[in-house]
Amino acid sequence: MARRTAAGAGAPPQAKTGEVSTSPASILASEIKQLAASGERDQARERFGALVALLQRRALRVAFHYLRNPADADEAVQDAFVKVFLHIEQYREELPFDVWFSRILVNASLDRLKARARQQRFVAPAVDEHDERSVDYLPTTEPSSERKLLGRERWARVSREVAALPDRQRLVFTLSQVDEQTPGEIAAATGMSPATVRVHLFRALRRLRGVLGEHV
């Protein structure tokens, strides 16, 4: 995907009427759909493995950024792929597969969040000494080289601010900045209108300006 500006302006995801989306994922998905429709379930499953390999990394980045927990992200991505395969016959080829998949991934991530909220109702969350927020929301591994580049302190502050965003702002920010989707794609994936997506993105960026760089 091409890099986009902070405003993230871009064309809506729908292909023109009658056209078939031509992204590699869309082509593979069409093939799998045809195999499944013709009853060749085993072959469809084999081809689906290639689709998983194509989208897996990207899906994990989005899910992890949104859920801030590796196990939850893993589960959400698994659930999303299983749902995609089980409902592949509902995929409409005139739409980009990536958008349809994003929608399913977002729903799977929201389901994980709800499940976690239900669990935490019965378990007292671990609390950071310096911050009242749950430790789950803080990165837990050794700093990566990129994080070192951004600066450990600054990364921690930005991460906390992103985690503290309201749910919809965080979702829009994640899809826009981590997955580099356009407002049109985000609107199609989340069910919001493109105008609402822009408003949420604007508010998220305004809130994050301070921690992204004092001079910005």
Binding site: R3, L60, R61, A73, E142, S144, L150, W155, Q177, V178
Partner: peptide
């Protein structure tokens, strides 16, 4: 431009953070 630059850095850091787990 500075905001875009900061967001680019954030994106790279976010990807690297996720990749370090998987």
């Amino acid at each position: 431009a500075r905001l875009n630059e900061a967001l680019e850095a954030y994106r790279a850091a976010a990807h690297a953070d996720a990749d370090s787990h998987f």
